[in-house]
Protein backbone atom coordinates (compact mmCIF):
# COMPACT_ATOMS: atom_id res chain seq x y z
CA UNK A 1 0.00 0.00 0.00
CA UNK A 2 1.13 3.58 -0.77
CA UNK A 3 4.34 2.28 -2.40
CA UNK A 4 6.55 4.57 -0.36
CA UNK A 5 9.79 3.57 1.34
CA UNK A 6 8.02 2.95 4.65
CA UNK A 7 8.31 -0.79 4.26
CA UNK A 8 12.06 -0.70 3.55
CA UNK A 9 14.35 -1.88 6.37
CA UNK A 10 16.15 1.47 6.29
CA UNK A 11 12.96 3.18 7.43
CA UNK A 12 10.94 0.56 9.31
CA UNK A 13 13.83 -0.75 11.44
CA UNK A 14 14.63 2.67 12.99
CA UNK A 15 10.91 3.25 13.48
CA UNK A 16 10.63 -0.09 15.28
CA UNK A 17 13.73 0.81 17.29
CA UNK A 18 12.22 4.15 18.27
CA UNK A 19 9.28 2.29 19.84
CA UNK A 20 11.71 1.01 22.49
CA UNK A 21 13.80 4.19 22.43
CA UNK A 22 16.62 2.76 20.29
CA UNK A 23 16.49 4.67 16.99
CA UNK A 24 20.22 4.33 16.21
CA UNK A 25 20.27 0.58 16.89
CA UNK A 26 17.38 0.16 14.48
CA UNK A 27 19.16 2.36 11.96
CA UNK A 28 22.29 0.20 12.13
CA UNK A 29 20.28 -2.99 11.57
CA UNK A 30 18.21 -1.29 8.86
CA UNK A 31 21.28 -0.10 6.93
CA UNK A 32 22.78 -3.60 6.89
CA UNK A 33 19.52 -5.23 5.81
CA UNK A 34 18.73 -2.55 3.25
CA UNK A 35 21.88 -3.23 1.28
CA UNK A 36 21.25 -6.97 1.26
CA UNK A 37 18.03 -6.59 -0.72
CA UNK A 38 18.62 -3.33 -2.50
CA UNK A 39 18.48 -4.92 -5.93
CA UNK A 40 15.55 -7.23 -5.25
CA UNK A 41 12.87 -5.61 -7.38
CA UNK A 42 9.14 -6.19 -6.76
CA UNK A 43 8.53 -6.90 -10.42
CA UNK A 44 5.70 -8.99 -11.85
CA UNK A 45 4.94 -12.15 -9.90
CA UNK A 46 8.23 -12.27 -8.03
CA UNK A 47 7.95 -12.12 -4.26
CA UNK A 48 11.04 -10.75 -2.54
CA UNK A 49 12.12 -11.98 0.93
CA UNK A 50 10.05 -10.44 3.70
CA UNK A 51 12.57 -7.76 4.62
CA UNK A 52 10.02 -5.55 6.37
CA UNK A 53 8.85 -8.04 8.98
CA UNK A 54 12.32 -9.42 9.78
CA UNK A 55 13.72 -5.90 10.14
CA UNK A 56 10.93 -4.97 12.57
CA UNK A 57 11.10 -8.27 14.45
CA UNK A 58 14.91 -8.31 14.70
CA UNK A 59 15.07 -4.70 15.85
CA UNK A 60 12.30 -5.09 18.42
CA UNK A 61 13.83 -8.28 19.81
CA UNK A 62 17.36 -6.90 20.06
CA UNK A 63 16.56 -3.35 21.12
CA UNK A 64 13.92 -4.68 23.52
CA UNK A 65 16.51 -6.87 25.19
CA UNK A 66 14.88 -10.20 24.33
CA UNK A 67 17.96 -11.40 22.47
CA UNK A 68 21.57 -10.57 23.24
CA UNK A 69 25.02 -11.78 22.31
CA UNK A 70 28.25 -11.79 24.36
CA UNK A 71 29.69 -9.26 21.94
CA UNK A 72 30.28 -5.54 21.66
CA UNK A 73 27.29 -3.53 20.41
CA UNK A 74 28.64 -3.12 16.87
CA UNK A 75 29.34 -6.80 16.38
CA UNK A 76 26.06 -7.87 17.99
CA UNK A 77 24.12 -5.65 15.59
CA UNK A 78 25.92 -7.37 12.71
CA UNK A 79 24.85 -10.80 13.96
CA UNK A 80 21.24 -9.67 14.42
CA UNK A 81 21.26 -8.50 10.81
CA UNK A 82 22.67 -11.87 9.76
CA UNK A 83 19.88 -13.71 11.54
CA UNK A 84 17.26 -11.41 10.00
CA UNK A 85 18.70 -11.89 6.51
CA UNK A 86 18.56 -15.65 6.92
CA UNK A 87 15.00 -15.82 8.23
CA UNK A 88 13.56 -13.43 5.63
CA UNK A 89 13.44 -16.18 3.02
CA UNK A 90 10.91 -18.02 5.18
CA UNK A 91 8.72 -14.96 5.60
CA UNK A 92 8.15 -14.61 1.85
CA UNK A 93 6.17 -17.87 1.84
CA UNK A 94 3.49 -16.23 3.99
CA UNK A 95 3.10 -13.48 1.40
CA UNK A 96 2.90 -16.05 -1.38
CA UNK A 97 0.09 -17.80 0.52
CA UNK A 98 -1.79 -14.50 0.89
CA UNK A 99 -1.46 -13.74 -2.81
CA UNK A 100 -2.77 -17.20 -3.64
CA UNK A 101 -5.63 -16.72 -1.19
CA UNK A 102 -6.52 -13.39 -2.79
CA UNK A 103 -7.39 -15.22 -6.02
CA UNK A 104 -10.67 -16.20 -4.30
CA UNK A 105 -11.48 -12.57 -3.54
CA UNK A 106 -10.67 -11.66 -7.12
CA UNK A 107 -13.09 -14.28 -8.44
CA UNK A 108 -15.85 -13.24 -6.06
CA UNK A 109 -15.30 -9.56 -6.74
CA UNK A 110 -15.73 -10.03 -10.45
CA UNK A 111 -19.05 -11.83 -10.02
CA UNK A 112 -20.84 -8.58 -9.33
CA UNK A 113 -19.98 -4.89 -9.42
CA UNK A 114 -21.22 -4.42 -5.87
CA UNK A 115 -18.86 -7.05 -4.50
CA UNK A 116 -15.68 -5.63 -6.08
CA UNK A 117 -14.92 -2.92 -3.45
CA UNK A 118 -15.68 -5.28 -0.58
CA UNK A 119 -13.45 -8.01 -2.00
CA UNK A 120 -10.72 -5.46 -2.70
CA UNK A 121 -10.67 -4.45 0.98
CA UNK A 122 -10.84 -8.12 2.02
CA UNK A 123 -7.61 -8.57 0.06
CA UNK A 124 -6.07 -5.74 2.11
CA UNK A 125 -7.20 -7.42 5.34
CA UNK A 126 -5.60 -10.66 4.15
CA UNK A 127 -2.31 -8.83 3.53
CA UNK A 128 -2.44 -7.24 6.99
CA UNK A 129 -3.13 -10.59 8.66
CA UNK A 130 -0.37 -12.17 6.60
CA UNK A 131 2.05 -9.44 7.67
CA UNK A 132 1.20 -10.04 11.34
CA UNK A 133 1.65 -13.81 10.92
CA UNK A 134 4.96 -13.23 9.15
CA UNK A 135 6.09 -10.84 11.88
CA UNK A 136 5.29 -13.32 14.66
CA UNK A 137 6.72 -16.30 12.77
CA UNK A 138 9.93 -14.52 11.78
CA UNK A 139 10.29 -13.08 15.26
CA UNK A 140 9.97 -16.54 16.77
CA UNK A 141 12.54 -17.95 14.35
CA UNK A 142 15.01 -15.14 15.04
CA UNK A 143 14.52 -15.60 18.78
CA UNK A 144 15.12 -19.37 18.56
CA UNK A 145 18.07 -19.00 16.18
CA UNK A 146 19.69 -16.49 18.53
CA UNK A 147 20.05 -19.26 21.14
CA UNK A 148 21.90 -21.41 18.62
CA UNK A 149 24.15 -18.51 17.72
CA UNK A 150 24.84 -17.77 21.38
CA UNK A 151 25.86 -21.42 21.85
CA UNK A 152 28.18 -21.22 18.84
CA UNK A 153 29.73 -18.03 20.16
CA UNK A 154 30.43 -19.75 23.46
CA UNK A 155 32.11 -22.66 21.67
CA UNK A 156 34.36 -20.47 19.55
CA UNK A 157 36.46 -17.52 20.69
CA UNK A 158 34.36 -14.38 20.72
CA UNK A 159 35.38 -11.98 17.97
CA UNK A 160 35.77 -8.58 19.58
CA UNK A 161 36.69 -6.80 16.41
CA UNK A 162 34.85 -3.52 16.22
CA UNK A 163 35.22 -3.37 12.47
CA UNK A 164 32.65 -6.14 11.84
CA UNK A 165 29.79 -3.79 10.87
CA UNK A 166 32.05 -2.02 8.37
CA UNK A 167 33.10 -5.38 6.94
CA UNK A 168 29.51 -6.59 6.74
CA UNK A 169 28.51 -3.38 5.00
CA UNK A 170 31.42 -3.81 2.60
CA UNK A 171 30.35 -7.35 1.81
CA UNK A 172 26.77 -6.19 1.36
CA UNK A 173 28.11 -3.61 -1.07
CA UNK A 174 29.95 -6.38 -2.91
CA UNK A 175 26.59 -8.12 -3.23
CA UNK A 176 25.39 -5.13 -5.24
CA UNK A 177 28.05 -5.51 -7.87
CA UNK A 178 25.67 -7.02 -10.44
CA UNK A 179 24.98 -3.34 -11.10
CA UNK A 180 28.32 -3.38 -12.93
CA UNK A 181 26.59 -4.90 -15.92
CA UNK A 182 25.18 -1.54 -16.93
CA UNK A 183 27.08 0.51 -19.55
CA UNK A 184 30.43 1.84 -18.25
CA UNK A 185 29.60 0.27 -14.87
CA UNK A 186 33.08 -1.04 -14.13
CA UNK A 187 34.76 2.25 -14.97
CA UNK A 188 32.33 4.22 -12.83
CA UNK A 189 32.59 1.91 -9.82
CA UNK A 190 36.35 1.45 -9.76
CA UNK A 191 36.95 5.07 -10.74
CA UNK A 192 34.92 6.40 -7.83
CA UNK A 193 36.40 3.75 -5.51
CA UNK A 194 39.98 4.71 -6.33
CA UNK A 195 39.31 8.44 -6.27
CA UNK A 196 37.58 8.32 -2.90
CA UNK A 197 40.16 5.96 -1.42
CA UNK A 198 43.06 8.14 -2.52
CA UNK A 199 41.31 11.27 -1.23
CA UNK A 200 40.58 9.53 2.09
CA UNK A 201 44.21 8.46 2.43
CA UNK A 202 45.58 11.89 1.54
CA UNK A 203 43.30 13.88 3.85
Amino acid sequence: MLQSLLCRPLVCAPLAGSVVGQWTTGLAIGCLLELVWLLRLPVGATVAPDDTQVAIAGTLLYAGGLISFPLPEEAAVGFVALLCATVAGVGRHVEILVRQFNVRFSRRGLCSQGLAPRCHWCGAVAFVLGAWCSLLFCGLLIWLASFGLQWLLLLFPVPTWQGLPALLLLLAVVGLLPLLRIPHGRWLFFGSFLTTYVVAQVF
Binding site: V173, F190, S192, F193, T195, T196, A200
Partner: peptide, 14 residues
Protein backbone atom coordinates in the same frame (compact mmCIF):
# COMPACT_ATOMS: atom_id res chain seq x y z
CA UNK B 1 27.45 2.86 -8.91
CA UNK B 2 29.46 6.03 -8.30
CA UNK B 3 27.95 6.35 -4.81
CA UNK B 4 28.53 2.62 -4.25
CA UNK B 5 32.19 2.88 -5.28
CA UNK B 6 32.80 5.84 -2.98
CA UNK B 7 31.02 4.12 -0.12
CA UNK B 8 33.04 0.92 -0.61
CA UNK B 9 36.23 3.00 -0.52
CA UNK B 10 35.15 4.70 2.71
CA UNK B 11 34.36 1.33 4.27
CA UNK B 12 37.68 -0.12 3.15
CA UNK B 13 39.43 2.92 4.59
CA UNK B 14 37.60 2.43 7.88
Amino acid sequence: LVVLGSFAALLADA
